[in-house]
């Protein structure tokens, strides 16, 4: 059997194809998209011998199950979950050889939110603007998985690389989000900025791949109204009129008119992908690195 493909047995709550996204098109209104927990995505690919940018599956809370048409090496990372192959337990966070015709099931997350399923050869869905990622804001890329859907797999790249140490992630007890203030922190009062840096927030159930919404004390504004639309970065803490910060994740709109009080640097974003609704959130103000000594600027 040379038919390298997977068919979806159980799509789960929301399972999408993700790679490292399509940066470089924001000026056309195209979101970056791509895996929300990028380190977990890269790790899953390394475990099966893929280049890190290969396309994999990103699940949400309830996992998913797929049948492999040809024997395939797979790995599940990200949110910790029970893994089975045709009902028999298999390791999480390690390469697993799935025989032709067998079903790989990544179960509901024990803790965390999004698991990553990588397949040797990668998911070979049709790329759009150089990426196979599903973008839920603008609808680019493959549709979210549906029961019975079939996705092609690419040819395997060879044996997996040497062992990776895979730490088993614990639950996200508290989501700590360091942020650099600005560019529109002057739209908030001193009290509003204090609320952000010291207040207690929680992850809202209305969160998705576009943004992690929060519940808590609204930030007091120094001025009303909206800005003329301006470019929005990944990690922006945008504050809509209800005063509660929204952390922009990978499917965020490329421009927006609500003020951005601060920006969470990309390297701190992965835990946000794994924080379930209700998780306490703490925003910690950090400083930019001092200017190089030779420079007074």
């Amino acid at each position: 059997m040379t038919d390298r493909a997977l068919s979806v047995v159980r799509a789960g709550a929301l399972t999408t194809v993700q790679d490292l996204g399509r940066p470089g098109h924001a000026h056309l209104g195209v979101p970056r998209a791509g895996a929300l927990d990028e380190p977990a995505h890269r790790l899953a690919n390394r475990l099966v011998g893929n280049p890190e940018p290969a396309a994999a599956l990103e699940t949400t809370l309830t996992g998913c199950a797929v049948r492999l048409r040809a024997a395939t090496t797979v790995a599940v990372t990200g949110a910790a979950c029970p893994v089975t192959v045709d009902g028999r337990p298999a390791p999480w966070g390690a390469p697993v050889r799935v025989p032709a015709g067998a079903v790989l099931d990544a179960g509901p997350a024990a803790h965390g939110l999004r698991s990553y399923l990588a397949f040797a050869g990668g998911v070979a869905a049709e790329p759009v603007l150089g990426s196979r990622a599903t973008d839920l804001l603008s609808g680019l890329g493959p549709d979210p998985l549906a029961d019975g859907a079939v996705l092609p797999l690419g040819p395997p790249h060879g044996p997996p690389a040497a062992v990776d140490a895979v730490p088993h992630p614990g639950p996200v007890a508290e989501l700590v989000l360091p942020f650099l203030p600005g560019p529109r922190d002057d739209w908030f009062t001193a009290a509003g900025l204090r609320t952000l840096a010291t207040g207690r927030f929680r992850v809202s159930a209305a969160s998705n791949r576009i943004g992690l919404r929060t519940e808590g004390t609204p930030l007091e504004r120094a001025r009303d109204g909206e800005l003329p639309s301006e470019g929005m970065p990944l990690g922006a803490l945008q504050v809509p009129p209800n005063g509660l910060p929204v952390l922009f994740l990978h499917d965020h709109p490329t421009t927006g008119g609500y003020p951005v009080v601060g920006v969470v640097p990309e390297r701190f974003l992965a835990p946000a992908a794994q924080a379930v609704p209700g998780t306490p959130v703490r925003f910690v103000r950090i400083s930019r690195r001092p200017a190089p000594a030779a420079h007074s600027g």
Partner: peptide, 24 residues
């Protein structure tokens, strides 16, 4: 630079190694 995003009254540049150098 990774992105150059013009808007109504702004141009946003993202993915700069040294934003401060570009300001100067």
């Amino acid at each position: 630079v990774r992105e150059i995003v013009p808007a109504a009254r702004t141009v946003f540049l993202d993915g700069l190694a040294d934003p401060r150098g570009l300001i100067a």
